[in-house]
Amino acid sequence: MDTLTTLLLAFISIVLINNLVFTKFLGICPYLGVSGRIDMAFGMGLAVTFVVTLAGTLTFLLDHLILIPMNLEVTRYVCYILVIAGAVQLVEMYLRKFFPTLYDSFGIFLPLITTNCAILGLCLFINLWQIDNLLEAVVLSFGAGIGFTIAICIMAGIRENLDLADVPDALKGAPITLITAGLLSMAFMGFTGMIK
């Protein structure tokens, strides 16, 4: 029961309260780039969720099984980024071989994900928050992916409608997207303080 509550709290906190896009500014690049259409955004979100869950779990295991026992914390960043790049490659190969249709739908996003800061960012935050059990790390990683998907889909929905609006010339493109993101992040601020 107790662990369940902790996990649920962790999940809600990473999805809404500490949403990576709106409070930690992670994953802004794809957020600006691909969030033009809802179906694309959703595909990207799913791909990120998949990879971030894998990467979060793997880096957590790597940290606790190899780096900390062997006092190799200095190589942490190098190892993390290699694990993430490796995970992305693996996912790509696996999908291409076994789920060709799925690969076609979000295969194009996969190479982009290696340099998505949301993934490395989440691994670093798991380390920073001193999460010490595997289950919580997995839930946090999965939640981070869901949070990213929610953010990017909300944004895509708004941008689809924004196409019909008369935006001043100078604000077209990135500026209006950023301002919208600002307003959205204000809305997400309402979630802070939910967990005591």
């Binding site: 309260i17 500490n18 409070t23 928050w129 802070t192 303080g193 967990i195 005591k196």
Partner: peptide, 8 residues
């Protein structure tokens, strides 16, 4: 340590 409003 413990949880505050925004973070630990």
């Amino acid at each position: 340590s413990g949880f505050g409003f925004a973070d630990k």
